[in-house]
């Protein structure tokens, strides 16, 4: 079980080279297959996640949630997806058409790109980048542009307001996000995510870096536009923020991208702080799924507990609390490492 997918990939590439393809082409085809698998996983995940979020939020509010379509309402999301696909695609006449139409595509592409570096098991990643973590952070921040495109292209005051908020929020939370991961990088000494996982063989980084974990969690919530930091959407104030003018499948793409981002960030959190794919008894790819879903459930829990905070509080929290704390954490980590070396422990 453990090496199931790795072996499958090896068999496939072996078969391709035996067909007379040069290794480069075989690798390209393999990469393509990997992407298709990733996209399938994402789509399946979204179906489960949307259902799960509705169910979990219902339980938090002592309701039942969707329970009509299929056992426990599991087919509800599929029905919703079909409904969204068949809806009219409205482009506002005053919109900047090109930007309006490309924004959702850009958003989803950026979200899917995050999966390139996430180790989904032992030796299971699309590309083993040695600057994986950096790649993840930089690609992740690109989604700001997609939201700004959507807000600007819609030519609607609410959309633009939402977009401006999202830019302000994401740019300011990017800093504590990157800083909190820096502590982990300092200890493991690598930006490669597989190396970071390997460095947690004995002790998970959530124990060594609790402050980093909390700051990362908060910053990631803001990056994901999830409650209580869902200012760019803010249904009650901005009628959906940057998504206001979108309908049907375009809107669904935004939704899809948000959940894709959620899974990616949760998977990164599981990788960096919770020991990645390591775990006893079960195969590695199952462990990462379990851990990712655990983190996702915590995200749900936080979202359905706290009310949305005010924009200025959000900003001041980032600059006055999170940035100093994460900087302090780096200082502490550096001092700790030197202390360790001085004592001869590592």
């Amino acid at each position: 079980m453990e090496a199931l997918f790795v072996n499958l990939a090896a068999v496939l590439s072996g078969w391709l080279t035996s067909l007379g393809l040069s290794p480069i082409w075989a690798d390209t085809v393999l990469l393509f297959v990997k992407w298709i698998i990733v996209i399938t996983i994402i789509t399946l995940n979204i179906i489960i996640l949307i259902w799960l979020e509705r169910k979990v939020s219902a339980f938090f509010q002592e309701r039942l949630g969707p329970n009509r379509l299929g056992p426990f309402g599991i087919f509800q999301t599929i029905a919703d997806a079909i409904k969204l696909l068949t809806k009219e695609d409205i482009v506002p006449s005053a919109a900047d058409k090109l930007i309006f139409k490309t924004a959702p595509m850009f958003f989803i592409v950026v979200a899917v790109m995050l999966y390139t570096v996430i180790p989904m098991g032992q030796g299971m990643e699309v590309i083993n980048l040695n600057i994986g973590l950096l790649f993840f952070i930089s690609i992740g921040s690109l989604s700001t542009i997609a939201l700004l495109m959507a807000g600007w292209g819609s030519n609607n005051k609410w959309s633009l307001m939402g977009a401006v908020r999202s830019v302000a929020q994401m740019v300011s939370y990017e800093i504590p996000l990157a800083f909190s991961l820096l502590g982990v990088v300092m200890i493991s000494g690598s930006l490669n995510l597989q190396d970071i996982v390997a460095a947690q063989g004995k002790l998970w980084f959530i124990i060594l870096q609790p402050i980093a974990f909390i700051t990362y969690f908060i910053a990631a919530t803001a990056e994901l536009n999830r409650g209580p930091f869902d200012m760019p959407e803010a249904e009650q104030e901005l009628t959906g923020g940057a998504y206001t003018e979108y309908t049907g499948m375009r809107w669904a793409l935004f939704f899809l991208a948000e959940y894709t981002n959620l899974v990616a960030v949760s998977a990164l959190m599981a990788t960096v702080f919770l020991g990645g794919w390591q775990g006893p008894w079960l195969p590695s790819w199952l462990w990462i799924i379990i851990k990712t879903y655990g983190v996702i459930l915590v995200f749900f829990w936080v979202k359905w507990t706290f009310p949305r905070i005010r924009m200025d509080h959000l900003m001041s929290f980032s600059w006055k609390v999170l940035v100093p704390v994460s900087l302090g954490n780096i200082l502490l980590t550096g001092a700790g490492i030197y202390f360790c070396r001085w004592m001869g422990w590592c």
Binding site: A58, F59, Q61, E62, R63, L64, W301, V302, W304, T305
Partner: peptide, 16 residues
């Protein structure tokens, strides 16, 4: 405290 409250409600019987 807030997280605790929602956690408690998660396991309570639905009131709808």
């Amino acid at each position: 405290k807030g997280l605790g409250i929602t956690f408690k409600h998660f396991f309570q019987k639905e009131i709808t």
